[in-house]
Design a protein around this nucleic acid. Sequence first.
DNA 1: GCCAACGTTGGC
DNA 2: GCCAACGTTGGC
Length: 139
Amino acid sequence: MAYWLFKSEPATWSWADQKAKGDAGEEWDGVRNYQARNFMREMKVGDLGFFYHSQKDREIVGIVEVCAEAHPDSSTDDPRWECVDIKALRSFSVPVTLDTIKADPRLEDMVLAKNPRLSVQPVTEAEWELICALGKTTP
DNA sequence: GCCAACGTTGGC
DNA sequence: GCCAACGTTGGC
């Protein structure tokens, strides 16, 4: 079981949009970055991920579960691009902001802090548990 | 295969 | 809205 982080501009695809899809989930399509795609190829059904709002909000707002492993991205004919499907599991009681993450020395190595442009990122188990605690959510 | 030019992203 | 950082592209 692995942990991940999915980054989205709320104006394009928000946590509310994701939750509205319910258990059916939705393709995490549109990723055009090899590193991000490679992480998605490693994902297994049942893996968990944070849902992060970039740009204006800059905070982790909820937890998603991978519900389909990597398959061709239906938003393009280019066979290079693949994506997984994810579904919303639960919301944070308290969103964990980028400021909070950057202010915590235990989280300074998070990919989010070091490479904020990567749209799909791995999260360590220690980071996962700490951020769930900060968000007052069960891991 | 290298590197300059360009486009995109996201924090500030 | 600006700008720095990064990834990708294309000419050589």
